[in-house]
Design a binder for these strands. Structure first.
Lengths: 365, 365
DNA sequence: AGGAGTTATGTAAGCGCTTACATTTTGCGC
DNA sequence: GCGCAAAATGTAAGCGCTTACATAACTCCT
């Protein structure tokens, strides 16, 4: 046991060697592997003639670099991760699309995972992304599993919270409470006092919750409140918007205006209102959120709050790569939302005959 | 020079050692790194007691594996790549979403890149994905840059062409020509003879071209043809659908039915038709393609061809991982499309007064 | 107790690339 | 030509993990 014999073993005796390695390029070009690496990465001055020989060798050999080797030795993957609540949500898709294009131009790759609005899933996905190796991580919102941020700190992975503003963490977004307030104030200024809300799922969704809180604030500032039966939560889908509006119209009294958590819910709400014989916005005003692609084309064209989701994507990329590459970055990046007034909201009908007169007294604070 | 002195150098003297390595876990658990690896990957029998010690060590040390090291040594990245024409295209988004969820359940990661319908960009993106390391690649359609397939073969990367059927390559999809023919036959059976087409961009888009070819075949089988001025190409966006319909309505004679390349174009076409004073489908029938989320909610609800995009994603995953893991796979995977008849198409009005009587003779072959 | 076979575990090579440090080459001034 | 400084290039360690092969431990049978 103490005199273990030195042995010579072959590693991977049957392994395929189809790939061209950096060493092959170096031999072909007549330089060291270090010089090949320098040429490929632009990390040092290389004589023009040697550079040309290396580049020709890469072309002639059809060299494809091994990213895992590069990541392992450089301790950088040149990959950014993003965990979003739902990939199919168009707002996130726009931001992700913009981020992916921006990163592409910077020579970086984006990996996207989804959490289905569940903080435990977000933690799990983030952990998986980190074990695959990411140089930075985009998160959505400000509410996470308690182990997530410490884990990112331990692994030294820069992150940014999007669609929200934060007192402590890097962020790009807007004040969701103010956004909700803005929509409610717009309807209140039109003369509405009976305002309902169709929100997305709010559990673990601080953005949706914040906007509803903003609506409540605006109402309370005018001595009004949001009754329980006018507060509906539904997943962000057209059909769910229909079902939510159906529930609102079935309430003992009806609102004259409805603030929807996004444009898909608003689309469904409009369809259901009209199917119920109501005219939009004459009988009931409806607003959306996000100004998705189809919003302008609805009948009537949707009044909605526009969020430049592509800016969120790009600023996230700038922040994360700024951190990776030690560039100066802003911790807080506020973007502008914009109320896009189209035709789905109007002053309430005077002399309503839809049961509102009966409920008006009970909604004053 | 001949007597080079042996030197001892420190690698990364200032490197941060924040990460816990497999060696740390091994030391903590009192086993070799090989045993830790065996436990984590389930690649060999390990005594229950040792396994428990390893798992506890991972938990106590918050061990996060280094994916690059794993990929380099195992020659597997456990990552699948996908190059799609446009990430924001909802049909592709559904397929990608389904693939991503399926791969996630298999412990694999998906990286998505976009080509903007450009074969040169597709080649570039595929090459980048390969240098990052992918175990398989999803492609869209059957038309590619000539260097792409040979490069995949050289790198030994399994691939699959989606949304198409192929005589030579792995594929999952449907016959695009037959799909176009089916839509045209449906309208012809309703009695239409004056049929226009609003297609997506067809250059390097064999799917769109195939469907238009199918429309032409159906017309020609009945002694009809598709006039040049009724063949419009537009990017897949709602606004473009409006512009295309505007062009069709400005033609000397108008079609009584329009086949749109996807539901977004159809949406825009419906809006423009109605803005022009036409009733859909009474004055002009319109069909879409893909049965996107909003199709059923349009006014009138859209008649469209439904493609199970999620099936495309999942079957792609099964095929690619089957290849990676040496499971039996089918080269050709045909999926069913389905004509979803809603309310946007109807028999043509009798005794049309929109100029069609004048053009009828010139469209007979 | 010894031998054979099976199971469990350890050793050490190496996956492909990067880069700190060492060495060589080049250019310039005297 | 020599000396010095700067530029260019080479050497070799090692990033963290996997796994082929070697060795040790265990079990069963005679």
């Amino acid at each position: 046991m103490e005199t273990a014999k030195p042995t010579k073993r072959k590693r991977f005796p049957n392994a395929s060697t189809a790939g061209v390695s950096l060493a092959d390029v170096a031999a072909h070009a007549g330089v060291s592997t270090a010089t090949v690496s320098r040429v490929l990465n632009g990390t040092a001055t290389v004589a023009a003639e040697a550079m040309e020989r290396v580049q020709r060798a890469c072309r002639e050999l059809n060299y494809v670099p091994n990213g895992a080797a590069r990541a392992l030795s450089s301790r950088r993957t040149r990959t950014i991760g993003a965990v979003v609540p739902s990939i199919e949500n168009a707002g996130f898709a726009v931001a992700i699309g913009a981020l992916q294009r921006w990163l592409d131009a910077e020579g970086y790759t984006l990996i996207v995972a989804s959490s289905d609005y569940d903080p435990a899933a977000e933690l799990r996905e983030a952990s998986l992304l980190m074990s695959r190796g990411i140089d930075g991580l985009l998160l959505v919102g400000g509410e996470h599993h308690p182990d997530l941020i410490p884990m990112l700190a331990q692994q030294d992975v820069p992150f940014i919270e999007t669609w929200t503003l934060s007192d402590h963490h890097p962020c790009v977004g807007f004040d969701n409470v103010a956004a909700g307030r803005q929509l409610a104030d717009y309807l209140l200024d039109l003369g509405h006092v009976d305002i309902g809300v169709i929100a997305g799922r709010m559990r673990h969704n601080d953005r949706a919750s914040g906007r509803v809180a903003g609506v409540r604030q605006a109402l309370e500032a005018r001595g009004l409140r949001l009754p329980t039966e006018w507060m509906i939560e539904r997943p962000y889908r057209i059909l769910e918007g229909r079902l939510a509006m159906k529930a609102l119209l079935a309430a003992p009294t009806r609102p004259t205006a409805v603030i929807c958590g996004n444009d898909q819910l608003a689309f469904g709400a409009i369809i259901e209102a009209r199917a119920s014989g109501l005219s939009v916005p004459a009988d009931i005003s409806i607003t959306g959120f996000n100004d998705l692609d189809f919003a302008a084309f609805l009948d009537p064209p949707l009044t909605t709050l526009s969020v430049p989701a592509d800016r969120i994507g790009i600023i996230s990329g700038e922040y994360l790569l700024g951190r990776v590459l030690d560039r100066p970055v802003l911790r807080v990046n506020e973007i502008e939302t914009r109320l896009v007034v189209r035709a789905s909201a109007a002053p309430p009908r005077k002399g309503n005959d839809n049961g509102n007169n009966k409920g008006k007294g009970s909604r004053r604070s």
